[in-house]
């Protein structure tokens, strides 16, 4: 599915990612945990194709496709989804309109037909129901005036509509109360499938109580310092980053 080999990247001349390698198999859920400023969000943005970051060496492949050759929107159409740590507001653009527009844009890039309005609405209503979202979400402008929890839930809604093969969720859990966290976690669990992989970037073990990861990576200073099973997250919780030789 996703293969990152020896990736180094910098922003404005500052090296952030340092010879990072990571392989995520189809259907797997990986958690990436690490202190603030370690470069976790940068990793997400570099995979997504943010042009502000310079990739100096290494490669990223998704299902055999060389991602570094593709623009952001092309990567998205290949099935890559990045849930933003701070979802952006788009005044005047209704949520349902935004979703339909982006879904059709992806379909167009892939050479598929547009969704019919009926099919779109039907699946939107289903997904919103599953996420416990009020119908008025459809009509509200994208993320405008949304609470932190609503914004994150909206990210999960987009995820569930776009049905990517790889979803990277950047701190989707932070700033959520326990109920919102459960809704988000249920959303992700519902979407787990043998064809869909997840990378969960998180600070907290808490999220992993609700979403069982296959692999946990400890991330520090631009690369992965240790990988293992869910027990790593527990060790981190109990003993802190110091137990991995990492300054928090």
């Amino acid at each position: 599915m996703l293969t990152i080999d020896n990736l180094s990247a910098s922003v404005e001349g500052n090296p952030i990612l340092k010879s990072l390698s990571l392989t995520v198999g189809a259907g797997e859920v990986h958690a990436i945990m690490g202190p603030n400023g370690a470069g976790k969000s940068t990793l997400g943005k570099v995979i997504a194709g943010h042009e502000e970051y310079d990739v100096s060496s290494g490669s990223i492949h998704l299902s055999g496709e060389d991602l570094l050759e593709l623009d952001i929107e092309e990567r998205a159409s290949k099935g890559l989804f990045l849930g933003f740590q701070y979802p952006v507001e788009i005044p005047g653009v209704q949520n349902h309109y935004f979703l339909r527009t982006v879904m059709n844009a992806q379909r167009k890039t892939r050479g598929e037909d547009e969704l019919s309005a009926g099919d779109f609405l039907k699946s939107l209503n289903e997904e919103m129901k599953a996420l416990n979202m009020d119908a008025d979400f459809k009509k509200r402008a994208v993320n405008v005036g949304f609470s932190g929890g609503e914004k994150k839930r909206n990210e999960i809604l987009q995820l569930s509509m776009l049905k990517p093969s790889l979803a990277i969720l950047d701190e989707t859990d932070s700033g959520l109360d326990i109920d919102a966290l459960k809704v988000v976690a249920e959303g992700v669990n519902r979407l787990r499938s043998p064809e869909r992989s997840f990378i969960l970037i998180t600070h907290y073990q808490r999220l992993l109580d609700y979403i069982k990861p296959d692999v946990v990576h400890i991330f520090a200073d631009g690369s992965i310092v240790k990988s293992g099973g869910p027990e790593l997250a527990l060790q981190l919780e109990e003993q802190g980053y110091a137990s991995f030789g990492v300054k928090a």
Binding site: A48, E73, G92, V93, V102, Q106, T109
Partner: peptide
């Protein structure tokens, strides 16, 4: 950041700007 967000969801840069501008004029 708005353009980036729209592009990550699949819109071309120009379409992203159009979407944002049309929202502004609604």
């Amino acid at each position: 950041e708005q353009i980036l967000y729209c592009r990550q969801r699949g819109l071309k840069e120009e379409d992203a700007v159009n979407l944002i501008v049309n929202g502004f004029c609604k």
